[in-house]
């Protein structure tokens, strides 16, 4: 009746016969010993670092507070993407309008305040929000993995009988889309704000329009931009749903459904509008 015994972790193939072909017995046993040592070292590293991480998150504020901090910083980011998109779209009004808008951003507040004061205040705010968002996400991830821990070597099965539509996949991809957005933003700042090579193409301070066109002329950068916009749509859609859940607004079904719809509309809207720019540059509509 018993067909097979499948132990928790798949057994290592016998190294002398399969994975390494025929090798001398001494070398083989040395390799096996090295394998065992490496496995034990990894286990030690993994378990100690997990313990350390769990300890570190225990000192963090309770989960509802972390969630609120993520909701606040996330809402700030979502609002920013909308404003940023509106600024971006001025590229279609031509070089003069776009460069004028860029100048306005640097000089807004002057002459009452020194030039760039508001710009820097805004940058510091965004940096603080980013630090908050990332720290809370990391702590919540550790807590989640701790609470959903499984026996060693036992992976979660792909659930049977559950079809996942693209939005459902997006829901489950907050961490990966978040990482994509973070890396893209770093590249984006190095490229178009700082003008640092190799992220940037030929960069002239103040010539925002030309910098943008030269940058997005590069197919790889245009592709990265499009990928980042896909991640943005996914992240925003689920982000707004979660804002509703984590602030208590979604106890009302109608509110929950509206927020979900708003997230999808805002996410795809901003992403599509932004994505039109690299496409327009590639198609030489914007040149």
């Amino acid at each position: 009746m018993t067909i097979s015994d499948s132990p928790g972790a798949p057994a290592r193939p016998d190294s002398s016969t399969t994975s390494r072909g025929t090798v001398p017995a001494t070398l083989d046993s040395a390799l096996r010993a090295a394998d065992r040592l490496r496995a034990r070292a990894w286990e030690t590293v993994a378990s100690t670092s997990v313990d350390a991480m769990v300890k570190a998150t225990e000192k963090m504020p309770p989960t509802p507070q972390l969630k609120l901090a993520m909701a606040a910083s996330g809402t700030l980011f979502s609002g920013f993407t909308v404003v940023h998109m509106l600024g971006n779209l001025q590229v279609y009004q031509g070089r003069e309008a776009f460069d004028g808008y860029a100048r306005f951003l640097r000089t807004v507040g002057s002459p009452v305040l020194p030039e760039k004061t508001l710009l820097w205040a805004f940058r510091v705010t965004m940096l603080a929000a980013t630090a908050t968002h990332v720290t809370c996400a990391a702590a919540l991830t550790v807590r989640a993995q701790q609470a959903a821990s499984r026996p060693r070597g036992q992976k979660r099965l792909r659930p049977r009988g559950r079809r996942r539509r693209p939005w459902d996949v997006a829901k489950r991809s907050m961490r990966s889309t978040g990482v994509v957005l973070g890396l893209f933003t770093a590249h984006h700042i190095a490229d178009l704000t700082v003008g640092a090579r190799p992220a940037a193409a030929e960069h002239v301070q103040g010539a925002a329009y030309d910098n943008l066109v030269r940058s997005l002329r590069r197919p790889a950068v245009a592709a990265l931009y499009l990928a980042a916009m896909t991640a943005l749509a996914a992240h925003t859609a689920q982000g707004l749903t979660q804002v509703g859940n984590d602030t208590g607004l979604s106890t009302d079904r109608a509110v929950r459904e509206k927020l979900e719809l708003a997230g999808r509309l805002a996410g795809t809207g901003v992403a599509l509008a932004n994505a039109s720019i690299p496409l327009a540059v590639q198609l030489r509509i914007v040149r």
Partner: peptide, 21 residues
């Protein structure tokens, strides 16, 4: 999806509501 009582997603948000309150 698995809840035998078919409890709705809205219930999740009661945690945050009571916490903020």
């Amino acid at each position: 999806e698995v809840c035998p009582a078919g409890l709705p997603l809205e219930n999740l948000s009661a945690v945050a509501r009571e916490y903020l309150r």
